[in-house]
Write a protein that binds this DNA or RNA. Sequence first.
DNA 1: ATGTCACAAACTTTGTGA
Length: 276
Amino acid sequence: MRIATWNVNSVTARLPRLLEWLQDSAPDALCVQETKVADFPSADVESLGYEVAAHGDGRWNGVAILSRVGLADVRRGLDGEPGYAPAASTATAQEELPLTTTDGPPPREARALAATCGAVRLWSVYVPNGREPGHEHYAYKLAWLAALRDTVAAELGESPLAVLGDFNVAPTDADVWDPAAFVGSTHVTPPERKALERLRALGLTDVLPRAMKHDTPFTYWDYRAGNFHKNFGMRIDLVYASASFAAHVRDSYVDRDARKGKGPSDHAPVVVDLDL
DNA sequence: ATGTCACAAACTTTGTGA
């Protein structure tokens, strides 16, 4: 069984590359992040034999799971999932108007989706970026990761389970091209890494993929400044596998070739092959 | 230091987010 995860950075913009990759790599199930659509364009992938479960809220975020081995018990969102409301505009703040009273909690975003595909339970997750340490979005990121941990904890049992997606955290300094370049930035701070550690403490294993080049299994390279060409990347797309899932992993690799060519995502897929 | 994308609306340009 082949399972993969890929942040496509807009499924609308990436549809030709997605269809090409599905045909070339033939995953049995694919977790997708940053679909950036309310309605997933399902027809084309269905013609390749995949069922689609999607969770999208429009312009930002959005996750999906594509499967050709069944798609059952679909869940959207996390237990106790925090929401996020952007800060008020500065123009409003300068007028010193009384804060508008908001009714209820901030809206939840489309960042987590689960489905059972054949013998395995999969979560497709797109963890909040965090913007910068100390930012409201950074606190949201940590709270979101805590809710992810609690939700996964409640689902863990005998069945193989994996959480796959764009975690927006590099687990160790080896997972960024230059730790010195990330001082003061998100993705590498102790609280973010601690949040991943608490998730792994449920008994999950970080399935480290093979690199296809450079001995650095990076999964993301900024579009700017020739970062891909210079291999200035990060490993932030992760596969966290339960013991019964990890026991069946035969191989895993980063499909770095998918980051090349015309109109790529800024992330590469991570592929996991299982002997079940 | 901040060079590229993608998206939507203030739409032939800008802002927001990554």
